[in-house]
């Protein structure tokens, strides 16, 4: 649903970064998404070309890295895998945990082609 607005924000960021880097084109980008970010990777992939059309990210290859849901238990102190609606400690079963990963919505890396200056 809101993946298109997320993509528009992403393209805005790519354009700003490209200006910063004096790049003329974005070749590749790596995005990390955890299921607790509320963004669906498949929908993001579909929406990206629409948001990128006509920008310098137009033909960029988008790679999405799924981030696992991991929690740290505040009771027994151990880390474990969890699922989106069951963030309990995998060791002692306590519910008082904090999220280590799984809610990321992150632009990790971008590959640019730079402007070629004349010598």
């Amino acid at each position: 649903m809101h993946e298109l607005s997320v993509c528009q924000a992403l393209v805005g960021q790519l354009e700003a970064l490209a200006r910063e880097q004096q790049a003329i084109r974005v070749v590749k980008l790596l995005v990390g998404i955890g299921p607790l970010s509320g963004v669906e990777p498949a929908l993001l992939s579909q929406a990206f070309p629409l948001a990128a059309a006509g920008t310098l990210a137009q033909d960029a290859e988008l790679t999405i890295e799924d981030r696992p849901v991991r929690v740290h238990c505040l009771q027994c102190g151990q880390d474990s895998d969890a699922s989106v609606n069951r963030l309990l400690c995998g060791h002692c079963g306590d519910w008082r945990t904090e999220l280590l990963s799984g809610d990321e919505l992150m632009l990790v890396q971008v590959e640019f082609v730079r402007e070629q200056a004349y010598v």
Binding site: A9, L107, V110
Partner: peptide, 19 residues
């Protein structure tokens, strides 16, 4: 250097940082 002659830049920024 990466495969296609581009340059990779590590960003690590929230996609919604503008928001």
């Amino acid at each position: 250097k990466t495969g296609q002659g581009g340059e990779a830049v590590t960003v690590l920024r929230n996609l919604l940082s503008e928001n």
